[in-house]
Design a binder for these strands. Structure first.
Lengths: 252, 252
DNA sequence: CGCGGGCATTTACTTATGATAATGACCGAG
DNA sequence: CTCGGTCATTATCATAAGTAAATGCCCGCG
């Protein structure tokens, strides 16, 4: 159930089997959502965090003039809110992109658990800081990358994030269910220009996108074109399980 | 020394006098930097956080093609790194905009302190999440606001952030030492276009900028024009000191 | 089988923004 | 005072991106 979450964490944290069991125990029952449905229950006190179990979702804002900006894309295994969240913080405007199933993690339990185990705490920090780094890189795209570069960069990022959780086939092909209109709202472009740039990108033969399937033909080439440097994703280890032993007393 | 930091925290957290003393005690000696100088000592193990005591700084990235994007602006009282940071995280590319003095907070001591006092922990979370919210709003600007709106929005934001720390005169005028070239790198615009848009903004008579002095003539008008909604800054309380009493056992 | 809806694709046109380069204003150092 | 540096301003030209609107494609549903 929270398997994908753990799988992702293994790329940046060292958790024992015991740690993982604790995290799994925190996971509360699952809820399903239709595509385009909003995740949040408006005004709910929100004593829990949202974990994407399956499907894609996003965090967005709508400005007064009606323009929409997607701030963040959430894949399976992603937490939609910071684990140290304060009660009133972060108005939720999270919407499902595909049909989605979510799980919920009780926030107070979560923090108690983090205090009790330095390893878990560190894993949660790694996850949080990584997701901030992703948003930051997104900001850089919007500020200083061209339309084509933005698209390419996104596809390179998704490639790694999906690979982390085993959703890439043959190391180069994955499902990309985001609509061109949504790509526009994500990358700060108009629908039409997304279409144009997508074609330009296909014309380079570095990648292709047909139906909902994205295939990378030349990873290095695509990364160069997109000014992509993977270091911001903070993948430190291969996804190996750590040998369980006693935890050290202090967070590193 | 850390007074500005505390002053800012009072807008979102409830600290006792005792709490504040503890935070002050954490603050390590101060260092000075010339304008344009980089803050970070490359490769240093970084066992501490950087606190801006005086002056303005920024966090930036330079892409392979030479383009530069400023990700975040740091004012007095701002922490340049998340308090729960992992050792290697967050490559530092922080530069002084004006002459700057910084202080350093020992990272391990910081976390121990947070664990010991729920109020301090909550204050630090408030600060961290607020600075993320600011970056997120910045992202929205880059994606969906026009050049003029971006500039206006920035000036509205600075107005509040500076007011929090008492750096606004008569509630409408403050020092704005950021160069037009830097504004471009911050807002994803070219130098020339910043200049153009600045004039357009002045022409509205909603605000003016001469020398390094920014004056807002019509706050409501400027906010409307910029699609500015202050709620993301999470100012909850007037800057009143909380009456000191025993802390509650659990973080809220 | 045919209709409607969601999504992708084009076309034609407008506009915001970028690139280059020259000029002016200001200011501190010698 | 004057030279050089930094920053602001202007002008000209080039282009990326937006807007509007029509068309095509696919697919599920009745």
């Amino acid at each position: 159930m929270a398997q994908t979450f753990l799988r992702k964490l293994r790329h940046g944290a060292h958790l024992t089997q015991e740690n993982e069991n604790v995290l799994i125990a925190l996971t509360r029952p699952v809820r399903s959502l239709a595509a385009r449905e909003d995740v949040s229950i408006e005004g709910e006190p929100r004593g829990h965090l949202t974990l994407i179990v399956e499907g894609w979702a996003c965090h967005y804002t709508t400005l007064e003039n009606g323009k929409r900006q997607i701030v963040s894309l959430y894949l399976p295994g992603d937490l939609c809110e910071p684990f140290g969240i304060l009660p009133r913080f972060m108005t939720n405007a999270i919407a499902a992109i595909t049909p989605v199933t979510i799980a919920q993690l009780r926030h107070d339990t979560m923090r108690r658990t983090a205090q009790a185990s330095p390893r878990i705490e560190e894993a949660l920090w790694w996850d949080l800081l990584t997701s901030f780094a992703i948003e930051r890189e997104h900001l850089i795209s919007l500020g200083r990358r061209t339309a084509t570069e933005r698209l390419g960069h996104l596809f390179c990022e998704l490639h790694l994030r999906l690979e982390n959780i085993g959703l890439v086939d043959d190391e180069l092909s994955y499902d990309m269910p985001v609509t061109q209109a949504d790509l526009g709202d994500l990358l700060g472009l108009s629908l039409v220009h997304v279409n144009r740039s997508l074609q330009e990108l296909r014309a380079t033969r570095l990648m292709s996108l047909r139906g909902r399937r994205l295939t990378i033909h030349n990873l290095r080439g695509l990364r160069e074109l997109s000014l992509f440097d993977e270091s911001y994703l903070q993948r430190v280890t291969s996804p190996s399980r750590h040998q369980p032993h006693a935890e050290i007393g202090e967070p590193a």
